[in-house]
């Protein structure tokens, strides 16, 4: 029920956006996540963007994980 999937914004029109989820295109609402621009990734839940995906934080988490694993 609380599924969320990242998608890339490819078009914005007022409060709606077209997003690309692995080639699958979907119209979503930006009402809950208005400050986004084309090219950015958002987390999609039941037809709404509910948060921007932070690329920097994603990179940081992955770097951290890789370091932890290398340190074994």
């Amino acid at each position: 029920m609380c599924l969320g999937v990242p998608g890339r914004i490819i078009e914005i029109e007022k409060t709606m956006a077209k997003v690309d989820v692995a080639g699958f295109l979907r119209e979503i609402s930006l009402d809950l996540c208005p400050d986004v621009s084309v090219g950015e990734y958002v987390l999609i839940h039941t037809g709404f963007a509910i948060q921007k995906v932070d690329e920097e934080d994603a990179k940081e988490t992955l770097e951290l994980l890789k370091k932890m694993v290398q340190a074994i």
């Binding site: 029920m1 609380c2 969320g4 609402s29 809950l32 839940h45 039941t46 037809g47 709404f48 509910i50």
Partner: peptide, 13 residues
Amino acid sequence: AIGFETTSPTIAV
């Protein structure tokens, strides 16, 4: 309308 806080704002909208 069911759901937790993830879904509630979408219902509010």
